[in-house]
Each structure stands twice: as C-alpha cells, then as structure tokens.
Amino acid sequence: MDRVKKLSQKKRIVIKVGSSTLSFSNGRINLQRIESLATVLTKIHQDNVEVILVTSGAVAVGGGILGIDKKPHNLSEKQALAAIGQAELIRIYQKFFKEYDQVVAQVLLTKDGILNPVRRENACNTLNSLLNMNILPIINENDTVSTRGVEFGNNYILSTSVAVLINADLLIMLSDIEGLYSEDLKKIINATFIPTVTEISPGLEKSARGSKNSFGTGGMTTKLDAVKICFEAGIDTILTNGKEPEIIYDIIKGKEIGTYFISSKT
C-alpha cells in the first residue's frame, strides 16, 4: 500500500514533541513554536483525526521561571523544576489552543500507572472519554513522583506506551533530527537518509547507536527502542524534525517527510 493511502487512514495519532523542539538551544521555551504546534494540532484534530500530544518541556519552563540557566543535574532538582514548569507549560498550551476554541486536558502518567492493570484501564478510559468529548489530551510524565527505576526515563518510551494504551494508528516523533540515517550523522558526512524502514535489523541498530543529540534525552537508540514497541503493537511511526510543526499537515497527506517506520502487523 502506498504512503499516501496508508497515512490517509490514520484516525488516531499520538504526537511526541521533545525539548529540542520546544526550546531554544539555551534551554528557554520557544513560545512561537508552541503556538504553531497548537495551530496545526487543532486543525488536524478538528478535521476528524484524533490527536494526543505527548510533550516535554516542563523542566525548561521551570528553569526559565526561576532564572536557572544550567540543566539540573540531580533528580530532585529536576523534579522541583518540573513541578514549577508543568503548570506553566500547560497554561501556555491552553492559552494558544484557546485561540482556536480547542479544549485541552492535562494527563500526567507514571510508568507504574501503565503497568498496573487497574490503573492502566483507568488511564485508558480517561483518555478515550476525553477524545470522545473532542478534547485534546496533553500528556507528560508525572516527573514529580516518578523516581529513578520506576520512571519511563524519557518521553519516547512514554509516547509509545500511550500509543499502545489507546490503540493509536500512528506515532509522530518530533525531534531535532530529520529522521534515520545510515550512519551517525555527526561522524560521517555522507550518511544516507533512510525514508522507509520495515524491519529493525541488527545492522540498522548498530549504525544508529552512538548518535546522541546535545539536548533532550534521546539518542537514536532510544528512538529505535520506542519504534520497536510500536512495531510489535502494529503501530506505524514517523520520526522527523520538529522545527516547523506545519510539516505535520504534509506528513498526514503522505508526503515523504522524515523516516516512516511501517509495522508489518498493521
């Protein structure tokens, strides 16, 4: 099946947006980026495609409010900044979504909340009811109570867990890289871009390993781990650069943007 047709059938999409998309290189929040994202997601959501947003950025916003320039190193400081920043981040999202009369809801998840069957069902029901009411859920990890060992660790894994939980058709990961390359881009200039992946071979994984972005937590290995979970669950994934959120329109129209990971179990 061709890309255009495949993507036109996607009716429930999880969009994962990372700190590298939401903030400047100095860590401060990029308001105009958030505004564009809100514009695009509202239009898609109001056009009969259910959209669930998984967002990072709480720590960045918290740091901005307190005027802290450095990235926090210890966990408790990170959690404190997240507690300050999450409330603000949602307020900012709400502000921009409200311009288009799109109601949003905040859902903060922890890993044990998804592993525990009862809580899992509750989370699933909540998200489904929100979507039924045409509300756009904005999800983040509940950093303040997630401790090392029981945390998702990064929002790539969180976004796949959400996609699996609510039975999404597609996961779009907005990152600071265009997609998957044959080699580590930072080391090899002539690395070739891979537009489509149908299987994550050991060779592919090996070449992806070691490429780590400067900001944000996810290197390519993390992204591939996330994609593998989606593969298993029959969910397609697209990895692309989030610097212009408007490309999401083209992505769902089937334009060749980013790397398209097609699950054989779809």
Binding site: S23, F24, N26, R28, I29, N30, L31, Q32, E35, G64
Partner: peptide, 11 residues
C-alpha cells in the same frame, strides 16, 4: 509581548 519574550528567550 509574546514575540518580544520569545526573542528574549532565544538569548
């Protein structure tokens, strides 16, 4: 003010 704050945020 949003645009100016964003400029300020960008450094």
């Amino acid at each position: 003010t949003m645009v100016l704050t964003n400029l300020r945020n960008s450094g």
